[in-house]
Each structure stands twice: as structure tokens, then as C-alpha cells.
């Protein structure tokens, strides 16, 4: 089974549906002032010359193949799920040292009230039951996808091909 998220940046509108669907699926406690949600949505305002473009990006754990967090974790709390190949955390083993935060290139690890790391597990139980991750299901524009990385990029490639033809 595959283990990738894919975000079609052209279709992400910053609507936060994915972020809340994740909270609901995982019973997340978000009342503390700092951001503890596993999926975050950002508005990026990019200026090129006099042109300003606002773009939106939804991000959660990338479930890297060569996961830096997994290698950095001194207590073996981070592991790879055998079935879905998601990078998962066993809170019982986490010692709250934040090594994973330092290692993660995407700023993904979050720490709950108990001080232990928590993050997206790719809705592994849902994947095994043939369901898509909660965030993917909610996405109103279908910007967020999950599946085999090669199939996801093939879809993107198809769109690029269509654009090439449209330009001629």
C-alpha cells in the first residue's frame, strides 16, 4: 500500500475543511493558545514586482520514506506502520525530548498537554478499512489527495499535458 499525500496547489483555497476534519477524526484538543492541530493551513502572500498573489497550502506529516524524525528519535517511539508505511508515534515510548522537531524539515511534530509528540498517522486504520484519510474526504475542491505516489504524480502530469495542448 502507498503512503503519500498530494496537494494540488492550484485547487487549495485555504478553507480549513481538512484541518477540522482531522480534529474530528482524531479528537484533537486545540483549546490551548498555541497551534496543536496536526494539519495546518497557511496563506502565503507572495510579491513578484508589483504583482501580489495569495496562495494557500495545507500541510501535515509527509510520511517521508527516509524519515529524519524516525532516525532522530532516541526512544524508538517513532516507527513505520507495516501495512500503510505511514510514520507513526507510540506515545507510551515518547520521552518528549523534541529531537523529532529538530530533525523534521516540515515542522510537523506537535506536543500535547502530556508533553509527548503527536502527529498525523495518515488515518492508517481508515486506510486499512478501505477508507480515505479524513482530511482527503472533506476537501471541497479535491485539492488534497492520498494514494500511490506514482499514480498521484501521473495525475498531475496529465494535467500538465492538457495545459501544454491548451497553450498551442
Amino acid at each position: 500500500m502507498s503512503h503519500a499525500f498530494y496537494l494540488d496547489l492550484d485547487r487549495c483555497t485555504g478553507c480549513f475543511a481538512c484541518a477540522v476534519a482531522c480534529m474530528d477524526q482524531n479528537d484533537l484538543e486545540v483549546s490551548r493558545p498555541e497551534p496543536t492541530a496536526w494539519r495546518q493551513v497557511f496563506a502565503i502572500e507572495a510579491t513578484t514586482g508589483s504583482e501580489v498573489r495569495i496562495r494557500y497550502v495545507s500541510l501535515a506529516c509527509m510520511h517521508c520514506e527516509d524519515a529524519p524524525c524516525l532516525m532522530a528519535c532516541p526512544s524508538g517511539a517513532i516507527a513505520r506502520d507495516a501495512a500503510t508505511r505511514a510514520v507513526t508515534v507510540n506515545a507510551d515510548l515518547c520521552i518528549g525530548c523534541h529531537s523529532c522537531s529538530i530533525a523534521c524539515p516540515f515542522g510537523v511534530p506537535r506536543f500535547g498537554k502530556d508533553g509527548r509528540m503527536q502527529k498525523c498517522d495518515l488515518c492508517s486504520a481508515r486506510l486499512e478499512a478501505g477508507l480515505e484519510p479524513a482530511c482527503v474526504r472533506a476537501c471541497p475542491t479535491r485539492a488534497l489527495k492520498q494514494g500511490d505516489p506514482n499514480l498521484l504524480t501521473l495525475e498531475a502530469e496529465k494535467k500538465a499535458a492538457a495545459r501544454l495542448v491548451a497553450g498551442t
Partner: peptide, 21 residues
């Protein structure tokens, strides 16, 4: 937990941030 109904031809299984809450 809630999620969008696939059978609904208007929302087609999706929800917004409000509905998901």
C-alpha cells in the same frame, strides 16, 4: 465523528470547516 455523504450529489462527500466541526 462526521463526514460528508457521498450519495449527496450537491456536496459529493465533502464538508467545509464548519460542517466538519
Amino acid at each position: 465523528k462526521v463526514e460528508g455523504s457521498r450519495e449527496n450529489p450537491h456536496s459529493e462527500g465533502t464538508l467545509c470547516a464548519k460542517g466538519a466541526a
